[in-house]
């Protein structure tokens, strides 16, 4: 679930991540220690795919974002980076100002060979 500056679980990967973007090791539900790097949506390159995992938005912005389909673990693809940032969430395109993209935390989808090393989550 996307919450502001509050640590939350990422069920899909079994990892815990910090919405503020810190990369402290966390303990997953299964008890194993893992490390996950979160990246602001605005830092992903065009064409990158990622999973939304958190945000630091104001409550009303977050509510609208969720209603528009940017929900927990929603898969996103960056169609255009910059101002505006255009992403595809599932099958919908959404344009965001950079101010919003800066506050959205994602876990980038890693190439298959990197996933095994636990650097980033597979999507």
């Amino acid at each position: 679930m996307i919450q502001s500056a509050v640590p939350f679980n990422v069920d899909a990967t079994g990892l815990n991540v910090d919405a503020g973007g810190s990369n402290e090791p966390q303990t997953s539900a299964s008890g194993s220690a893992s490390r996950v790097e979160t990246t602001a949506l605005s830092q992903l390159p065009t064409g990158a795919e990622a999973t939304l995992v958190g945000d630091q938005l104001a409550a009303d912005d977050r509510q609208i974002l969720r209603a528009m389909g940017l929900t927990d673990h929603a898969p996103v693809r960056v169609c255009r980076q910059g101002e505006p940032c255009i992403i595809q969430v599932r099958t919908t395109r959404v344009g965001l100002s950079r101010a919003i993209a800066d506050l959205l935390q994602t876990i980038p989808c890693a190439p298959p060979n990197e996933t095994a090393a636990g650097v980033a989550a597979a999507c």
């Binding site: 528009m68 959404v94 344009g95 965001l96």
Partner: peptide, 12 residues
């Protein structure tokens, strides 16, 4: 009041 940041669905 705070300006609401641009957030728009881009229809096909």
């Amino acid at each position: 009041g705070r300006s609401r940041p641009m957030l728009l669905e881009l229809p096909p």
